[in-house]
Amino acid sequence: MLKIDRYAYINRLCHVHPVEKFSFALLTMMICLLSSSPLTSLLVILLMAGLVILPARIPVLFYLKLMLIPMAFLVTGVLTVALAFTKDPCSFLWAVKIGGYMFGMTTGGLIAAGKLFLKSLGAVSCLYFLSLTTPMVEIFSVLRKLRLPPLFIELMSLVYRFIFVFLETADKIYIAQASRWGYATLKTSYFSLGLMLSNLFSKSYYDAQMLFTTLLARCYTGELKVLEKSYSFSRKNLLLITAAELALLIISWWSGASTNF
């Protein structure tokens, strides 16, 4: 997760208008989810992988590893769709008989599972595209433009900032404990971990109070007003995005399975 955050700030698409990236990722994800053609899903996966690896210059190996993370959930989830459990003995590709019931895989189930698999992976790759190319701060500014309640966005940005302070503190405590044999045996490990968690809790509480004081000292009146970075829209990018979305729409239409629209 921290690596994704790091790449978000150093990738080559970092300077593209966040609204462009945000709307591109979201529109593509909608098309991918609404279209029932597996071809569309496959195209979305390839498109996003291409964009992340070529113009954004994210290392291929890192991206593949990232794609493996949802795979574990997907495979188990999809298996339950592929397997069927009925009394009807027909149309099974492979089955075992348990009592009066048949348990196995049907062609329909397998196709549905495959479609679902590709669709989910497509949607995930859209989100990966967004999070690998757009820093969190810019995503917040897009959400602000979308008129989300300020309180919500302020909370999100504070949480984001303090995740790092929290992790750093946890790391320091861990090192301090480990250097004094705090994690030598299973028993001491549990004990040290408990101490660390309670310390982190009280430290976070203290930090929150201190943060409020420091904000007050800078004339805080209940709203976290900040300057946002100004980007200019690129006509070329907007055209490319429209073209890509239209192409995806046409393809999913043409592949004849756009019944879900």
Binding site: P135, M136, V137, S157, L158, Y160, R161, F164, V165, E168, D207, M210, L211, T213, T214, L215, A217, R218, C219, Y220, T221, L224, K225, V226, L227, E228, K229
Partner: peptide
């Protein structure tokens, strides 16, 4: 304040520095 980590609330340096002036 002494501990910068409790004073810096924003994840972006520019936004962080702009907070005070905008409050004025």
């Amino acid at each position: 304040f002494q501990e910068p980590d409790t004073q810096l609330f924003s994840a972006s340096v520019r936004q962080e520095v702009s907070f005070g002036p905008l409050n004025l």
